[in-house]
Design a protein around this nucleic acid. Structure first.
Lengths: 221, 221
DNA sequence: TGCGACCTGACAGCAAGCTGACAGCACCCG
DNA sequence: CGGGTGCTGTCAGCTTGCTGTCAGGTCGCA
């Protein structure tokens, strides 16, 4: 974890760095707004601690510029105690959290950890298997990068195959999964779906293992 | 956006609900820890405001149980002023933010909004998605820069779609978040709102993914 | 060659979704 | 208090296009 502490008071800056380092961060410090903006924009930090009172450029402006530039690093701002307008302003500008000064280092560390934990909890929605890419968020399918329109049923079938791309799936298993136990269908319904999919994806993508079931392209027999 | 306010003082609870409702939330209240735990565990909220001093079950225990049960709803806790141990404890227990009592309703609302945005991994108060711009402070909508007048319900629906713009949203999910569990509506109510929105925004902005749900104008067909 | 497993084009049924009309209701304003 | 106004859910009728079925074909294997 790499952190940036933007703080003009050298003593506080040192304390910040020490506390964050003790918490497992690799912390760099910076005392000037202009430089902070440059660093935040060019370097890849996991967390930025930003003091609002700064020489060079106002902390709030720095924050707004980062957000405007598409920087999504979690930012924790330090504000003067009691000025709730400033906090609200900071949050509106895109801060993820604030801490009123003076504060306990324990609290800073707790919040910093929580912030990083939270920002890390996304991604992984793209499932790839051979030439196929499934976006499980948008429910879309791409073949060699080219989007392919599929229906709900087709998507469900593909998703199941992709999820179990390392083995052969028996027709009965697919039937069980695609249709509830209460509205079971015949095998032919499945074959129809597969035929339609093959027409869209090309013949080779879904392979038939005669007598066993179906598998995605590239699985060795 | 659906919110739960857990607060035993009925006056404060009413104030909370009023402020959050004015900010575009559908707020339910609850005065008891046990009940709060049950609600948070079973219902789908976008935000929970939790007072730590509660009858029935201690607020911190409620929070811990939620987290232990895998509930990831952002939680904003209300603490007594000055007790920083309590705050740290709260954050360690999985709270996403805290507010010391007494507080300004403006600040609560600002933090609530920020929390909801952050939980979806997004920054500022201006939410952009394709041709749409939502100002979550003023609760206004613009299409390609041109302001569009929308009703409260329409705004809520759009806000939810914009917040989760990278996903397809199932009708049931929208129903859950637009209406409380106690005044549930039929799917058709939703379709009516969407039809009215499309008349204002044009046909392409809200896409229908037949069999899955709705999504904002995206890249893939 | 024969049999069973599997494929596929056509088609109809049907459910998902859309829309215009309407009525209940909350709210606003005189 | 009372009428007007605008929001919103319900209803009914409609469109759309997904999807299972069927019938007939092809393929692989013994």
């Amino acid at each position: 974890m790499r952190a940036l502490a933007v703080e003009d008071d050298p003593r506080i800056a040192a304390d910040l760095a020490a506390a964050l380092d003790a918490a497992g961060f690799r912390t760099e410090t910076c005392a000037d707004g202009q430089e902070a903006w440059f660093l935040g924009d060019t370097e890849a930090y996991d967390l930025i601690v930003l003091d609002l009172g700064l020489p060079g450029m106002d902390g709030l402006s720095v924050l707004k510029r980062w957000r405007a530039a598409g920087c999504e690093t979690p930012v924790l701002i330090l504000t003067a105690r009691g000025s709730w307008q400033e906090r609200v302003e900071g949050i509106e500008a895109g801060a993820d959290d604030y801490l009123p000064k003076p504060f306990r280092m324990e609290e800073l560390v707790a919040r910093a950890r929580a912030l990083v934990r939270r920002s890390a909890g996304r991604g992984g929605a793209l499932q790839e298997a051979g030439p196929l890419t499934l976006d499980t968020n948008r429910m879309t399918v791409a073949l060699r990068g080219v989007p392919v329109a599929v229906t709900a049923q087709e998507y469900r079938l593909l998703a199941y195959l992709v999820l179990h791309r390392d083995r052969v799936i028996a027709p009965t298993e697919l039937l069980e999964h695609l249709y509830g136990d209460d509205d079971a269908r015949e095998v032919n319904a499945l074959e129809a779906v597969i035929a339609r999919l093959r027409r869209k994806l090309g013949a080779g993508v879904i392979e038939t293992r005669r007598g066993f079931g179906y598998a995605l392209e590239g699985l060795t027999p």
